[in-house]
Design a protein around this nucleic acid. Sequence first.
DNA 1: TATGAATGAGAGTTCATTCAT
DNA 2: AATGAATGAACTCTCATTCAT
Lengths: 216, 216, 216, 216
Amino acid sequence: MKKETTKEKMLDAAIRLFHTQGYAGTSVRDIAQKANVNVALISYHFGGKKGLYEQLIIQFFEDYLHILESELQKESESLKDLLLQVIRALLEYQSKQYLVARMVHREMTLDSVLVRELMSTYLRKEKHEFEQLIKRGMTGGEFQRQPVDYVIIHLRTMITMPYLSPHYLRELYQLSSNEPYFIDRYMEHLTRWVHTWLCGEVKSQPYQSSLSAQLI
Amino acid sequence: MKKETTKEKMLDAAIRLFHTQGYAGTSVRDIAQKANVNVALISYHFGGKKGLYEQLIIQFFEDYLHILESELQKESESLKDLLLQVIRALLEYQSKQYLVARMVHREMTLDSVLVRELMSTYLRKEKHEFEQLIKRGMTGGEFQRQPVDYVIIHLRTMITMPYLSPHYLRELYQLSSNEPYFIDRYMEHLTRWVHTWLCGEVKSQPYQSSLSAQLI
Amino acid sequence: MKKETTKEKMLDAAIRLFHTQGYAGTSVRDIAQKANVNVALISYHFGGKKGLYEQLIIQFFEDYLHILESELQKESESLKDLLLQVIRALLEYQSKQYLVARMVHREMTLDSVLVRELMSTYLRKEKHEFEQLIKRGMTGGEFQRQPVDYVIIHLRTMITMPYLSPHYLRELYQLSSNEPYFIDRYMEHLTRWVHTWLCGEVKSQPYQSSLSAQLI
Amino acid sequence: MKKETTKEKMLDAAIRLFHTQGYAGTSVRDIAQKANVNVALISYHFGGKKGLYEQLIIQFFEDYLHILESELQKESESLKDLLLQVIRALLEYQSKQYLVARMVHREMTLDSVLVRELMSTYLRKEKHEFEQLIKRGMTGGEFQRQPVDYVIIHLRTMITMPYLSPHYLRELYQLSSNEPYFIDRYMEHLTRWVHTWLCGEVKSQPYQSSLSAQLI
DNA sequence: TATGAATGAGAGTTCATTCAT
DNA sequence: AATGAATGAACTCTCATTCAT
């Protein structure tokens, strides 16, 4: 087993606590205690609580965007398949580190200088990439013509929802947004959404799914 | 001009600050200063910061549920129209006091004792009401058969989205979730969603809208 | 006996500690402990350690300048007597609160924003008042003509010396700058200085003083 | 170009910072950063912050006293000239390393164990040397009889003044105590002081100086 | 109701020093 | 001789609440 460095221990502890209690609700002493390291090391290694926090968020967005862009460069039979592939990749990435994902998405609901900066760098790019894809599909006739903005908003809402409302899903539907099982099920739903909504395909027969039959 | 009572001044100030900085990020001194009242009065009137906070949240949910339930008792031509009427009412209610709405929805993304209590009282009821409506529609053939849970999750996600991601909408799409204009536009989108997704109506012709034509 | 208010207790304790250990060498806990009050009250009443410090210094200079100006407006037989009267008044004022005086004069040897501000407000005025007096004496023939600046520097140096070098005086000469006895003795010296140096009076006979005879 | 050793770099940085912010107001990290060396080296080379500090002060006094004593052993026409020669030598020494001089003289205004030790070793010797000189002059009739102690205090005050109040001189009189020009001008003043005060010479004519005429 | 003072706990950060390398 | 990490104590200040008036 690989030994965790002090920095890693601190990052891990911080993620857990920020996720549960939020940034302002978490003290550096909490973090240090959970990580079993000296309190002063947070300032030493990250330049303070805020620095640690921002490092986590920025790292998340860097990786998130990298996945989005590299997925979009892959080849695919159709734009529809490409889109579904991208969606799945983003869900899986978030699922893999769902604590950070939840922390980040909640942070983005606040109105702060940091949030505005993150918006104008990462989310602007994300929006641009989605736009390109959707517009190409519309031009090529694969996607139905409709307001692009609302499509993207709708799409993004559904991609982030499991990490913005994990407790709602868990408490009321016994769904764990961080388990692979959930992604498979959720992808079914999203696939249907892409087919009917975006491509305008007529469903010739009633809904059928071995997996989710019991939920009807 | 009506004079604001001390309690009202405090509530107003608290809403603004909780909305901007979150609960833990707001101090009672901030609130008292913004409300221009003595700090000790927060403990006196609300039994402390937490009491003030909970009062705001509970009041929101009480009203929210009341609207949901009273709308559901109204008569309507079809369940589809009833559903759309409910959606609009909930959007309008949240829009009317969007600061509280944003505060509440963000709070629900945390994991605390309070959240779990709110879930099991208010959101459980909300889920139940939606379930009744959807299931009735499916039984009667008005709605397509599909997993009810995912429909509700999808529905609720779209109803709360404008108040969970207001800054995203504003920064990247110049959309203000608290303006009546937005609700009209957003309802168009949701109406289409209900028609195609829930009712399975085939769109015989390309998307047409005088309002949003320029967005295509 | 009059009861000391909390603010007064804090000011007293702060003076003693700042005097002994300097500003940076004194902690707010030291002050609070010595004053027997809660630490938080320093921030509450003075807006922090720095605020308390500055209040002490500014108060000193305000009073110092007030004494200087009011003494200068008194009537006197000669400018020489007026000057000596002013010197004595300033020495007595400093002696009365010698702890603050020492603290302030030491602070003025540092180079900080605060010091520059104090210089350009209080010490500039002090310089101006001295200048007026000296120049009047020179014009009237009472004082010998010589570089005014150096006279003032010399004068001020001697007025502040007992409070800048109290430990030197105490350790090596057993002189206590805060005792009335010292002022009388020191005034003898300064009187001679004013007579011979400023007025150019010839000393017709060897030095005679009942008080200081033993020191020859 | 000569390369500065690590120890020298640290000493230089320390002098600058102690001079500006005082001992307690300067952190070892400040020093290490300014010197561009590792923090731990301060403890390694000097046994800690205090060690570094004391080394600077003791070095200053050692040199100071050495100059005083060696100047006093030189031959001179008169004691008056010898005294003036000593004064100039001490001013020049302090001027050469005015940062340390200022730091040391300010430190001596505090009340600490270190200060008392320095007093009883170096300043006691300084006092003794001055005493010898003055008393010899009085016995020989060259100096006027008067209280020796006050003469020495007065003398020492004027020798240290430029390094105790450099900012006062700079801000209000545009005088730089560390420039050779200043010493020349200041020596004029001190020479006059020695002549009139100590030797009791009658000034037969008004003050005349090509250098300072404009200051009258 | 309303106020300003007071409280004790805890916040984040910096401190001088020590340690293993 | 030099380094970067680590330590535990101390720093100033703010926290939510309580108290007497």
